[in-house]
Design a protein around this nucleic acid. Structure first.
Lengths: 222, 222
DNA sequence: TATACTAAGTGTATAATGAACACTAAGTCG
DNA sequence: CGACTTAGTGTTCATTATACACTTAGTATA
């Protein structure tokens, strides 16, 4: 093991997460303030070192739980970043994941407001530690692309929702307007939605039918 | 560093490559016979440990050059496999890449036939070491998917080619027949091809116009 | 040297999909 | 009860995808 490490690199391994949500009509990502060097006091993506015997995905879910309290949300491996100089102190390779969480799931009393954690609009990012801005750019690019050809956006919706809310979610992700009638036609044609029978009666207007997703995996996910 | 390694995993890091080519109308992948334990004498994907100061991509290109003698071919990072038990002896995480090489480039005198290296049809694979069958399945899936919506297939073509050869290449990758007229219309409509002016006069039939790709990157690659 | 053979090369009609577009319905509020 | 707000709905037109068969230009050979 020692002779080996003279020739071969045995870097630290981390997982870093781009955890997205949508709130107040903005695509947001979770950032945490670093308490330690390097980049102390800088914002960064939540992450952590891989533990002994832990799979990469398990590590990612652990970080997710630690920071958000949630599990059972959409998550996929994004890319592995291994530039030799990405950590100024020692060689660290990070396996990046991205996750989607409906804001409603987060906005609970238990996720108390803390100053070392924030949800930042992806179009107004502070300076980030390490190569986290690259990671984030890549994650946003993938999310936008997948919104176009998969139903990944579902990962951001609450249990029940109006079609207009679903449309708004798509519009926020792809950063463009959609035609209401065409959108509704297309969504209903996929056959992934079902009416709940309930109606949303908030607001001074005609009530909206509430929908939910049929129970199934996210299609076309890879 | 020592205290750290008591808590955190510092695994060996390898890169493994699914190097594809097409020969005799079959999609083939390079396999190498392992000379060492574990899995001695088993076939495996070509790979190797990450060296000090080496980026992941550089490691992948190094392995590619060692095994094929080529560079400047299409390669992309595929996925990172980190199951704690994927190597029976110690923790090793592998970053998988896939590469595409035109057979003509490989079929040179210098790539002498050796018995510890083979090109295996992806539909007739031997037993593979580690989790390499999973890696390969994932690579084939990605290649097939990308053939449908990108021009990645270009990475397998020689400098000049007939349109019928290009069509055959697509048919091998996606494992389905295509309509000749529609295929030609679609390809020429992309505006990525240009006539070379030369003709292929092999065979007892009408000569075919030879085409080449306009010089540009592979589109839609991520 | 004519005929058989082979792969190259070409166009059109139909179906399916995508895009543009405006009004009525059903509630609440004042 | 009239003003306001969002929900909900169809049709036309343009674009794209699909299905499909014959002529062309060479070589081989009888």
């Amino acid at each position: 093991m020692n002779t080996k490490s003279e020739i071969y690199e045995q870097p630290g391994i981390t997982v870093d997460l781009a955890i997205f949500t949508v709130n107040t009509n903005k695509l947001k990502v979770m950032l945490v303030k670093r308490a330690e060097d390097p980049f102390r006091e800088n914002w960064s993506l939540p992450g952590g070192f891989l533990l002994h015997g832990e799979s990469l995905q398990a590590a990612a879910y652990r970080v997710l739980r630690e920071k958000t309290g949630v599990k059972n949300v959409y998550m996929e491996q994004l890319y592995t970043f291994g530039d030799p100089k990405r950590d100024p102190r020692s060689r660290v390779i990070t396996v990046a994941y991205f996750a989607l969480i409906p804001w409603k799931v987060l906005d609970q009393p238990e996720s108390k407001k803390v100053t070392d954690l924030t949800w930042s609009s992806v179009d107004q990012l502070p300076k980030l530690a390490f190569d986290h801005k690259d990671i984030l750019k890549y994650a946003v690019k993938r999310l936008r692309a997948k919104a176009g050809y998969s139903n990944i956006v579902y990962g951001l919706m609450p249990e029940q929702f109006r079609l207009s809310e679903l449309q708004t979610m798509y519009e926020i992700i792809i950063d463009d307007k959609l035609d209401k009638r065409n959108f509704r036609k297309r969504m209903l044609a996929t056959n992934l939605l079902q009416e709940t029978g309930e109606k949303d009666i908030t607001g001074a207007h005609r009530p909206a039918m509430l929908y939910q997703f049929k129970k199934m995996e996210i299609a076309f996910s890879n």
